[in-house]
Write a protein that binds this DNA or RNA. Sequence first.
DNA 1: GGATTGTCTTTCGTCTGCAGTCTACGGCGC
DNA 2: GCGCCGTAGACTGCAGACGAAAGACAATCC
Lengths: 225, 225
Amino acid sequence: MVSTGLPQGAVPKLERPGPLRDRVYEALLELITTRALGPGRHLVESELAGHLGVSRQPVREALQRLSTEGWVDLRPAQGAFVHEPTEEEADQLLTVRTLLEAEAARLAAAHADSPGIAVLEELCAEGESAVAAEDVDRAVALNAAFHAKVMELAGNTVLAELAAQVDRRIRWSYTPVARQRGAQSWAEHRELITAIADHDEQRATHLMREHTEHTRRSYHEHDAG
Amino acid sequence: MVSTGLPQGAVPKLERPGPLRDRVYEALLELITTRALGPGRHLVESELAGHLGVSRQPVREALQRLSTEGWVDLRPAQGAFVHEPTEEEADQLLTVRTLLEAEAARLAAAHADSPGIAVLEELCAEGESAVAAEDVDRAVALNAAFHAKVMELAGNTVLAELAAQVDRRIRWSYTPVARQRGAQSWAEHRELITAIADHDEQRATHLMREHTEHTRRSYHEHDAG
DNA sequence: GGATTGTCTTTCGTCTGCAGTCTACGGCGC
DNA sequence: GCGCCGTAGACTGCAGACGAAAGACAATCC
């Protein structure tokens, strides 16, 4: 088995194109999150199929998946429409996110080991430098990576999957706001890291809850203004 | 508009058969939850199509949906296989469920009104009588209805959707256990109702957490035994 | 003039057919 | 006897086509 001398992970699967439906799915998700397809827009299957150069079938399967994940609404015998997020729904999403992230922080505090904490600190340092350099896109990406790493350290796959869903939907109805509070956010991250390193579950839960609640509040302020 | 004299809600929509894919979806879900299609089984599209008297397309779409909801694993170019739940996954699901239900109880305590509480009490009474009559199926159904009502009173749609997903998956890897603790469970429900009626968020959260944790523990005991 | 009804276009829902790929099995060489 | 290779079968992935339902618009009747 190992006698071939081939590097183990170097040639994973020859990089195939992969199932067409998945690429259609990602293409549509990109179009939706970038607002190229705005909320409420009617997605005509044949139109999308022609535009992407494929048949209707992969498009239909992609739309199905997008529907179950809450990106589009699939009205029977009428077609798919890009979901229109309401104020109420955004608030509910933020509530749920607070819940999931806080639990993740607790579990991370319970299970985290040294290498994991080192990664967190590294991400935090990079994030701070990105904020200092006013590289907003990079800061946002690092923020997502930080939370994803906390979720990974929590070691609960189910929790991670749900959080990922919720997170993407939030970031969608939310793009303009996420760019505002930069430095403050990373200071809170630093506090959170120490709590996790100390295995202080209560403190980690509390800090993460505060952190996401701050974000939620800034959303409402933005909305009101 | 109202001069037609037709009863308003009596003729809702003529009860159409509805989209075929949905009926296929429900049929397959029934077959999976009842273990007629056991975990790990290879689901062949043409076979299912022939058995249900439809074409492959609705079957494919139903399988897609089942895949995104975690019921089947869709291996590319190989087909669909009924998902095999692991011990770890079951535990993670229960953890998440505890979290979601506890939050629902808190929100319910914050928002519940008299008619809602009345419904809860009614469900509780029915549940106790079902337990007394040793009608296990009915007791299980009422238990689900009770938790669903609490979730509805919480008034958070996103939370409810996530909880519904998690709940169904739990009930699947879980059927043999759910039938054990009957009377105890309903006593806890009664306590929870009073907490909600008093708008005591802390107590409602705590009680629901205890309640679901009891369930989780009995799962592990059953598993160990 | 307003409401109603008939038709017409658009789009979805479903079915059939074909090509690509993975798996399993039998034959062959060592 | 053991392992490798070639071939056959089966299944999935994708494309195209047909029937049906929903919405829009115009003509008609009251």
